[in-house]
Amino acid sequence: MSISTPGGPERRPTVVSTGKKPAAGRPAAGDKPAAKAGAGKAGGGKGTPRPGAGGKGRKPVTPVKVSQGRSWGPIALFVAVGVLAVGIIGVGAWAVYQGAQPWQKRADAINGIVNYRDKDPESLKYEKHQSGPLKYKYSPPVGGVHNDAWQNCMGDVYDAPIANEHAVHSLEHGAVWITYRPDLPQDQVEKLAGKVRGTEKMLMSPYEGLDKAISLQAWGYQLKVDNADDERIDEFIKDLRVNASVEGPTALCNQGVTATGTTPRDLGAQMPTQ
């Protein structure tokens, strides 16, 4: 912008020089452009010679226009190119940044989600598989020690409660476990089942003693909601299914326990007899 000011003073002498009464015309011509230059850029520039020309009846307007075009052209071009470049880079970078948001960030952005990986990492630690009933700090559990056998999580919809000790192992394999209060209306249960059926790394079961109607678990994450229409359910599944796996995307969800019942069992007990 500093380059635009030389255009003003440079113009003034040209106008004045063609005027016949320099002494008288000077102050008037000098005052007007100063006032107009402050008001506008191109409009002010064009208007400048006119009062002078109108009053004195001269047309030295052409050289004024030429000198004006010479400085504005490249500036406008560079500004345009610059704005365009910054725009392209900005929009591109923003799109890439948005798309590349790691799943952890997207999960943490879900309203009401509890991130136990940050809040209580100790509760998720374990040294080896343990058999038999185990105690969990949170209800429903979101991770930690578990049995050898996992609960089948091939989009399995269980109609009765299942064992925490198996379900936690499924969470470790990247499953999202939907639990609901046994008194949840049937149409809501069906809605939830529709998100589970046919999709691996998903399982669902009723759960006694929930403080909210529905609770979703992934390894180290939990979200409790009041009804099956809550949009955060889909967001939770989208962000954490498979991603939350401790053992990567190829950990198995089949060949596990398919029976219901809250007492953990040995896998051998439900294997078909050969």
Partner: peptide, 10 residues
Amino acid sequence: MNATGTTDRE
């Protein structure tokens, strides 16, 4: 052109 009409001030 400039030379002819220029005053001292200018």
